[in-house]
């Protein structure tokens, strides 16, 4: 039987398209999602290289501006303060670069934790099933019924307000939804024939989860992780807006929006406008990107 070959002459020629190639094609055709991807790349470049674009630093106070910020502190190309200065005379362009870095970092770290912890948790709960599943998911329910924003603020007050604590707090809650989604998907995957085949030839549970379950969860996870990033950014900005998140001299979009809002009665609308613009545009782009990925990766939704 070694020389038995399948006759392919009558079949259509050409490379078979994988699920991922299909998804890429659909995504590239989605104009809103592609535009969002471009915007996000621009924001990332702004965060990465913005600090070299003018001669100011994010800490330096421009003494010539002090006392006259509403009159001469506005955006100007001639003195290098492209976005104007903030209420203490620091360059707002550089402050925005700094805030963008922190906000994006929070979003990405939060989503990463959710992906790692949530997927593992949900996949294990769904695959093992039975009582383990019940206990694990009841725990998630319990965590979700706690008003976490208040508990997080409690944590921030007790263990000092630091960026590390903020990451810990976000990590504590961001994985819950992901765990639920991963579990739901696992439940439908685990009865598939290929999983049964793997079990029949004696593959261990852990290996099945790693090699068969998780790769098949990826599409859903990627989509949901993209949608989690803006949620985490909103979450952090909320706390920083209240003055309970990142502390001076560090900053984030929420903290900058708060300062802008506190100063808008003084006739300095740029302090609110620029951080708000970056916040809104980035969130918009992330939501459209998530939608585009969902359309591309979710075969049900066509």
């Amino acid at each position: 039987m070694a020389d038995a070959t399948i006759d392919t002459a009558g079949l259509p020629q050409g490379k078979a398209r994988s699920l991922w190639a299909d998804a890429r094609r659909r995504f590239l055709r989605n104009r809103a999602a592609m535009a969002s991807a471009v915007v996000l790349v621009l924001v990332l470049l702004f965060a990465a290289f913005g600090q070299y674009l003018n001669q100011w630093s994010n800490e330096e106070i421009d003494w010539e501006m002090l006392g006259m910020i509403p009159e001469i502190g506005g955006p100007s190309l001639s003195n290098g303060h492209y976005f104007g200065v903030d209420e203490t005379g620091r360059d707002l362009f550089q402050r925005t670069v700094q805030g963008t870095r922190i906000s994006l970092a929070v979003g990405i770290v939060g989503a990463l934790i959710a992906v790692l912890v949530g997927t593992a948790y949900g996949a294990v709960a769904g695959y093992v099933g039975g009582r383990t599943d019940n206990v694990m998911m009841r725990f998630v329910d319990l965590m979700m019924s706690i008003p976490y924003m208040f508990v997080l603020i409690l944590l921030l007050v007790i263990f000092s307000r630091s960026i590390v604590m903020l990451f810990v707090g976000i990590g504590l809650i961001s994985w819950l939804d992901m765990a639920r989604i991963a579990r739901g998907q696992t439940l439908s995957i685990k009865n598939a024939d290929y999983v049964e085949a793997a079990r029949a030839i004696g593959v261990s549970g852990g290996t099945i989860i790693r090699r068969h379950i998780v790769p098949n969860l990826l599409g859903v996870i990627i989509v949901y992780a993209t949608l989690l990033v803006p949620q985490m950014i909103i979450f952090e900005s909320f706390i920083s807006f209240l003055g309970l998140g990142v502390q001076e001299p560090s900053t984030s979009w929420g903290a900058l929006i708060n300062q802008g809002a506190a100063n808008m009665r003084n006739g300095t609308p740029w302090m609110l406008g620029f951080p708000l613009f970056f916040f809104v545009v980035t969130l918009f782009a992330l939501f459209f990107l998530g939608d585009g990925l969902r359309d591309a990766l979710d075969p049900k939704d066509r």
Binding site: P230, I234, S237, F238, F241, G254, I257, N258, G260, A261, M264, R265, P269, L272, L276, F279, V280, L283, F284, F287
Partner: peptide, 22 residues
């Protein structure tokens, strides 16, 4: 609805005050 998605309360509040108050 898509627009309002990126306007959480702490963004809406200053915008509203800027427009309707100031």
């Amino acid at each position: 609805t898509v627009g309002a998605q990126v306007l959480p309360n702490f963004v809406m509040a200053p915008i509203l005050v800027l427009i309707f108050t100031l």
